[in-house]
Computed example of a mutant assay.
Amino acid sequence: MTEVTMTVNGKLMRGEVEGRTLLVSFLRDQLGLTGTHVGCDTSQCGACVVHVDGKAVKSCTMLALEADGAEVATIEGQADADGSLNVIQQAFQDHHGLQCGFCTPGMVMSAAALLKENPKPTEDEIRHYLEGNICRCTGYHNIVKAILAASGQEAAAIAAE
């Protein structure tokens, strides 16, 4: 076992991990941050997306030891300081960008990374960026609308799928 230390959602966290412990397992099992979901175990679905040092990563493909000393942000850290939904989360709610909700944490984290890189993405840019995230319920139309709305753009006129 090896000690790992990282700042998660602004708080210093420590734990003991085996060398093979995935970051998603550390977050869920040791830190109790179960909003980061394990959907496929093969890095195909994107339900496990978190930010490590400001970059979106699939936490099922990263060892916890690789995040030692890093700044990690999870879905639990996305709400505003008063506990209310942030602009992306609120847009997902307002535009019905979720159904079962399983993919939603990864989608929100991916959307946050996209909007940090590109504050006013086009519909095509959003769809391209989300290629690593799978939603089995919504068909993406409302997810794209939510991200456009979160970026401050008009979301009503996007093309139907």
Rank of each mutant, 00 (worst) to 15 (best):
V108E: 10
D82I: 00
D80L: 12
L148E: 07
Q153A: 14
D41F: 03
A47D: 09
R28D: 05
E131G: 13
A47W: 03
F92T: 02
T36R: 02
G139A: 09
A155Q: 09
A73G: 00
Q99H: 08
C40R: 05
E18D: 15
A159M: 11
D94C: 03
R14E: 14
R14H: 14
A64E: 13
I134P: 13
K120D: 12
E123Y: 01
R14W: 00
L27Q: 05
A64V: 06
Q44F: 10
M62D: 03
E123R: 07
D82M: 02
L115W: 12
N86Q: 05
T104C: 13
V144D: 08
H96K: 06
K58A: 13
S25F: 07
E161L: 13
Q93D: 11
H141Q: 14
L33R: 01
V57N: 14
I147P: 12
E76H: 08
H95F: 12
A159E: 15
D41W: 03
G83S: 09
Q44I: 06
G101H: 04
G139F: 10
G19C: 00
E76C: 08
V87H: 14
I75G: 12
L114I: 03
C137I: 06
T74A: 09
V108P: 12
S84H: 11
L33A: 04
K55I: 02
L85Y: 11
S151G: 15
A47K: 01
D53T: 03
A157F: 14
G97Y: 04
R14I: 00
V49A: 12
E117I: 00
K120Q: 15
G83F: 11
V57H: 14
T104E: 13
C48D: 14
V8D: 05
D94R: 03
G32E: 02
M6R: 00
T104D: 13
E16K: 07
N133P: 11
I75K: 09
A160L: 12
E117M: 08
G97W: 06
N142Y: 06
A91F: 05
T34W: 02
Y140W: 06
T74Y: 07
T122M: 05
A70N: 07
S25Q: 11
S43P: 03
A73L: 15
V4H: 00
A150G: 13
C60I: 00
G77K: 07
V49Y: 12
E3L: 07
M13R: 15
R127A: 07
D82Y: 06
D82S: 03
E117T: 03
S59H: 05
V144A: 11
A149T: 05
T5L: 13
G19N: 11
A111R: 01
A67D: 09
G32K: 02
